[in-house]
Simulated scan of single mutants.
Amino acid sequence: MCASDARVEALSDGYVYDPERLSAEQCTGDACVVCHTRWPRPRTALGVLPDGGAVFGCGDCAALVGAGAPVAADTRVFAAR
């Protein structure tokens, strides 16, 4: 199981990610939980692990899953891996 020191109590009712499907970098917050991007380091909390550790996403992926800043309906949003 992935270990994480990060805790986000505000996301306790959010999406719970299965650590078995994530890489060690994703579990520790060093890579985006959606697209695996490592740089720049993801900063938007997208959910939690079963042990309460937070998982993070890059700004583009956070916008795609609805966790980032709102995006206007006529704005194109892309995610690249």
Rank of each mutant, 00 (worst) to 15 (best):
L64I: 11
C35L: 04
S23R: 04
R41C: 11
A54W: 01
P70K: 09
V48W: 00
D51I: 02
Y15W: 13
A6Q: 11
A3D: 15
L22Q: 02
C32T: 03
F78L: 14
G52P: 03
V8F: 02
R76A: 14
V8T: 12
M1P: 06
R38W: 10
A31T: 13
W39F: 14
L49V: 07
A24S: 09
T37K: 13
G68Y: 03
V71K: 08
C2H: 06
G57F: 00
A73H: 08
G59R: 05
D18P: 05
A45F: 01
G53N: 05
S23K: 07
E25V: 01
C27K: 01
V65T: 12
A80I: 11
L64C: 08
Y15K: 10
A69T: 05
D18K: 08
A24W: 06
P50G: 05
A69I: 00
E9H: 15
P40R: 09
D51Y: 12
S4M: 00
R43I: 01
C58S: 06
A62E: 03
S12H: 12
V8D: 12
T28W: 10
D74V: 07
F56S: 01
T44G: 02
V8G: 04
L11I: 00
F78N: 15
C2L: 05
T44R: 11
P50Y: 09
C61N: 03
L22C: 07
E9I: 06
V33K: 00
G57H: 00
A62S: 06
P50R: 01
V48L: 15
T75C: 13
P42G: 07
E20D: 14
L49M: 11
V8K: 06
A6K: 12
A72I: 04
E9R: 14
T75Y: 06
M1F: 08
R41Y: 03
V65G: 03
C61R: 02
V65N: 12
P40Y: 04
G68L: 02
S23M: 03
A80F: 13
L22E: 03
C35N: 09
D30T: 10
R38C: 06
G52T: 09
V34Q: 03
D5A: 14
L64G: 10
T37P: 01
C32Q: 03
H36E: 12
R76Q: 13
L49E: 05
C27I: 00
Y17M: 02
V65S: 10
A62F: 01
V16K: 14
S12L: 08
A24L: 10
P70Y: 11
G53C: 09
P19Y: 07
A67H: 09
C32D: 09
A62K: 03
R76H: 13
T28F: 08
A31F: 11
R21P: 02
R38Y: 05
A72N: 10
Y15F: 15
A62N: 01
D74F: 09
A45I: 02
V33C: 08
P42K: 05
A63W: 03
C32I: 00
G68W: 01
G68A: 01
R76N: 10
A69M: 09
E9Q: 15
M1T: 11
A3I: 07
G14V: 00
A10G: 06
R41K: 14
L64A: 14
T28S: 15
P42H: 07
D74N: 11
F56W: 12
Y15D: 04
G59W: 02
P19A: 11
P40C: 11
V33L: 00
R38N: 05
D60E: 13
A72C: 08
D74C: 06
